[in-house]
């Protein structure tokens, strides 16, 4: 400490100024060099990302537009034969109390046939869309394929090692609990074990993009946040067969893009998707085949454009009007 202080007064003011200038010059040059290097690195990274994105996009295009035959695979994933589901709903045709007392004793209403003798085969790597008016039996059919609603007659066979995963927003979720607990509840409801969820927990949170909100009660989430978390839980378990009921476009624009990419990846890995939606334009773009249901019956099944235009002409809606979904 003491041996440096005597050296300082020996410098003239000019010398000191020159030294300071030299030091400043050196620092400036150093900073410029660092900036240059950073810019180069950024450019390279951007180029790599662009290349990766292009490659991914190419892969997606390849996945979205499958083999020349139009059929992704000839291996069946789900075979359903002669499915029929009848419901006997409580109907209130005679709402007056006096008549109601008697009616309650003989509650034999004519059954509603929700699914009427439907047979279909879904192939591996295929995205099948189910269209039809409200009450056509689409959701009921999906539940039968999921194995949660046993049909009155007919049978469903699933080829694979996993039963189909029905993506339903927030099944098993409790809105009073934190997002974290809901990930566990939802995952376990879907058949995962706790260590499996432990392992994929960080991925799920990252995918959903919820960040710190994961520890807030799910009741405080916006509907989009809730949907993103539910989708992340369902998709992270790598389902072989994914069944979607009106929920495959969830969240904001960015998340819609991300979820669509994930589903395309799933198809590319020989996964299978069956989806029910009223978003006809989206189904046409995404699906390899469409199935059209009306009043429980399977009317037609085939290439999306053909089925969609038949469906639209049946409804008496022009193509332009249909674009607006």
């Amino acid at each position: 400490m003491t041996d440096e202080t005597p050296a300082a007064p020996r410098l003239t003011p000019e010398e000191r100024a020159a030294r300071v200038a030299a030091r400043q010059e050196a620092r400036r040059a150093e900073r410029a060099a660092r900036r240059e290097a950073e810019r180069a690195a950024r450019q390279q990274a951007a180029a790599e990302q662009r290349a990766a994105r292009q490659q991914a996009a190419a892969q997606e295009r390849a996945a979205a537009v499958p083999a020349a035959a139009g059929e992704p695979s000839s291996e069946p994933a789900i075979v359903a034969r002669n499915l029929t589901v009848k419901f006997r709903p409580f109907s209130e045709k005679r709402p007056s109390l006096r008549q109601h007392g008697l009616a309650a004793l003989r509650r034999h209403e004519t059954p509603v046939v929700a699914v009427d003798d439907v047979s279909l085969t879904v192939f591996r790597g295929e995205a099948l869309g189910i269209i039809g008016s409200n009450g056509a039996g689409k959701t009921t059919l999906l539940r039968v394929l999921a194995g949660t609603l046993p049909p009155d007659t007919g049978e469903v066979e699933v080829y694979g090692t996993q039963p189909p995963t029905m993506l339903s927003l927030g099944a098993g979720f409790n809105r009073k609990l934190s997002g974290r607990r809901n990930v566990y509840l939802g995952g376990m409801a879907a058949g995962l074990l706790k260590p499996q969820i432990d392992e994929m927990f960080d991925d799920i949170v990252a995918y959903s993009g919820l960040g710190d909100a994961i520890d807030r009660p799910a009741g405080t989430y916006s509907s989009g946040m809730f949907a993103r978390l539910a989708f992340a839980v369902a998709i992270r378990r790598d389902p072989q067969i994914l069944l979607l009921d009106e929920v495959f476009a969830v969240g904001d624009q960015a998340f819609k893009k991300k979820s669509a990419e994930t589903m395309q990846q799933l198809l590319a890995n020989a996964g299978t998707i069956v989806m029910v939606s009223h978003g006809l334009a989206r189904l046409r773009r995404f699906c390899h085949r469409l199935a059209w249901m009306d009043q429980g019956r399977l009317i037609a099944m085939g290439p999306p454009d053909e089925i969609a235009s038949r469906y639209l002409s049946f409804l008496g809606i022009s193509e332009e009007e249909a674009q607006e979904d």
Binding site: P76, V144, L145, G154, Y159, G160
Partner: peptide, 10 residues
Amino acid sequence: ANASPVLSLS
């Protein structure tokens, strides 16, 4: 297709 196990859901 026969190689993979079959789950019958009904």
